[in-house]
């Protein structure tokens, strides 16, 4: 699963949906692999407005990537900043979590990731 996926996912436990702590899920013992994907600047520019930047900063730091700036770049800044384009492309489009866990900050439930597939099925006592 691409790292970007974490920006769109939350804990599957119903009572966590309204809790701010359930997003983003926190990777734990994550093994990362990198795919070679062609850079598409337009995709990154169009993606910016729908990224939760604070959550992405958290994810990047937790995965050991360089700290992202506090504020997201504007589309113009991003288009003109080759390094920022490359960095975001690497983090969002190329990096995949292949093994590990995703932990909810609200309820503490751990979702396993195996062969790049996260398992969000809940044990019966959490449904």
């Amino acid at each position: 699963m691409k790292v970007l996926t974490l920006n769109f996912l939350t804990c599957a436990v119903k009572s966590c949906r309204t809790s701010a702590d359930s997003f983003p899920l926190h990777p734990k013992d994550a093994e990362l692999v990198s795919d070679d994907v062609e850079l598409n600047p337009q995709l990154l520019v169009n993606l910016l407005p729908r990224i939760d930047w604070n959550a992405l900063r958290t994810t990047a730091t937790e995965l050991g990537f360089p700290t992202l700036p506090e504020q997201p770049p504007t589309p113009e800044e991003l288009q003109a900043d080759e390094k920022m384009l490359q960095d975001l492309h690497k983090l969002l489009m190329e990096t995949q979590i292949s093994e590990g866990k995703l932990v909810c900050g609200a309820c503490g439930h751990e979702y396993a990731v195996r062969e790049g597939i996260a398992n969000f099925l809940l044990p019966s006592h959490l449904v």
């Binding site: 699963m1 691409k2 970007l4 996926t5 769109f8 996912l9 939350t10 804990c11 599957a12 119903k14 949906r17 997003f23 994907v37 598409n40 995709l43 489009m93 790049g116 597939i117 996260a118 398992n119 969000f120 099925l121 809940l122 449904v127």
Partner: peptide
Amino acid sequence: NRKSGRLLATAQGDLASPLRPGA
């Protein structure tokens, strides 16, 4: 001209339960 979008992931789950509201 790029033709294809990008798959983010496939995940195991119950319906749309792991998706953020409004995503």
